[in-house]
């Protein structure tokens, strides 16, 4: 009886996945047959002229997500190290759950906060400063009027990815055998040498997998990004210009369709998103399972 129930639950999951994939792909098929793979790099998006291209969104999606990855990985790993190795017991008990709570904040609330607090702050302080110091690099252009930008979206995504990387890497670091750390400490190694020489090397694949899971989260995030990215529609080198991502475009336009092809093009965006998301997860899982073998066999 229980077996049957569980089997049915598992089956339903598979059916739902298959159904979603089928609907998305079949919904996108008019756009796929009309634009082909060229859709991926054409960057004109004009629904009323029946011209659609995902290039600009794909670009902004990758930029915001990679920015989040680049910022959140070192921050998250540092928090993980702090919580697993360095912090006194009392502080761990407080900070650990707080970090996990950060992951539980609904993204719409983060988006709201991004619009009201983060974007003005970034526009007034962060962007001018970065432009002043690093302005010779094209990605740090002149700050725009609102602060709603690719850069701000990347920051919001960073905030969403940090707790994932932090809690996963903390658990990884805690799983490093005590005997190994003792063995290193007994050789006159400082705490930092133990971390650098034993803890980080034996968890590196897992940390990479954690970062990729965070990347998956960032790639698919729609609501918070749509709120703060500003919704521009041209390719810009500067991070401080507005833009839009695959997911943000989807959520912005799904309720205001111009024509049937428009819907199909949005579905095509969903297909791209689905492929990217699945790929990221598969890679993360492959790395994580290699880590499992590695810690068992150490080969």
């Amino acid at each position: 009886m229980l077996y049957g129930l569980c089997a049915v639950a598992g089956l339903i999951t598979m059916v739902v996945i298959a159904e979603v994939v089928y609907q998305v792909v079949s919904g996108a098929s008019p756009a796929i047959s009309r634009f082909g793979l060229g859709f991926l790099w054409h960057s004109t998006w004009k629904p009323n002229f029946f011209v659609f291209g995902a290039g600009e969104m794909l670009f902004a999606t990758l930029v915001t997500s990679l920015m989040a990855l680049a910022l959140a990985t070192p921050i998250g790993v540092s928090i993980g190290l702090f919580l697993s190795m360095l912090a006194p017991r009392g502080i761990r008990g407080v900070v650990g759950p707080l970090i996990e709570m950060l992951a539980a904040i609904p993204s719409v609330i983060l988006g709201l906060w991004g619009v009201i607090v983060l974007a003005p702050f970034v526009q007034q302080h962060v962007e001018p400063w970065l432009h002043g110091v690093l302005g010779f690099i094209p990605i740090f252009g002149v700050a725009q009027t609102t602060g709603l930008s690719v850069f701000t979206a990347g920051l919001v995504l960073t905030i969403m990815v940090v707790p994932i990387v932090a809690s996963l890497s903390r658990d990884l670091f805690l799983s490093v055998p005590r005997e190994l750390q003792d063995g290193a400490a007994a050789l006159g190694a400082t705490r930092w040498e133990v971390i650098r020489g034993v803890v980080l090397p034996s968890t590196s694949s897992g940390v990479i997998a954690a970062a990729l899971l965070g990347l998956g989260r960032a790639l698919g995030e729609a609501v918070a990004v749509a709120a703060v990215i500003g919704g521009g529609s041209a390719l810009h080198a500067s991070l401080f210009q507005p833009g839009t991502t695959l997911a943000a475009r989807l959520i912005d336009e799904i309720t205001s369709l111009d024509n049937k092809l428009h819907l199909a093009a949005l579905f095509y965006l969903a297909v791209i998103l689905l492929v990217i998301g699945v790929l990221t997860n598969l890679i993360a899982q492959a790395i994580a399972s290699r880590l499992g073998n590695q810690t068992m066999l150490a080969r």
């Binding site: 190994l180 003792d182 050789l187 020489g197 810690t295």
Partner: peptide, 18 residues
């Protein structure tokens, strides 16, 4: 750290680094 550098230790279970 200096104490342990002078006074080495070998544990019950062999614990080579990976």
């Amino acid at each position: 750290v200096e104490v342990r550098r002078r006074i080495g230790m070998v544990f019950q279970k062999p614990n080579p680094f990976p």
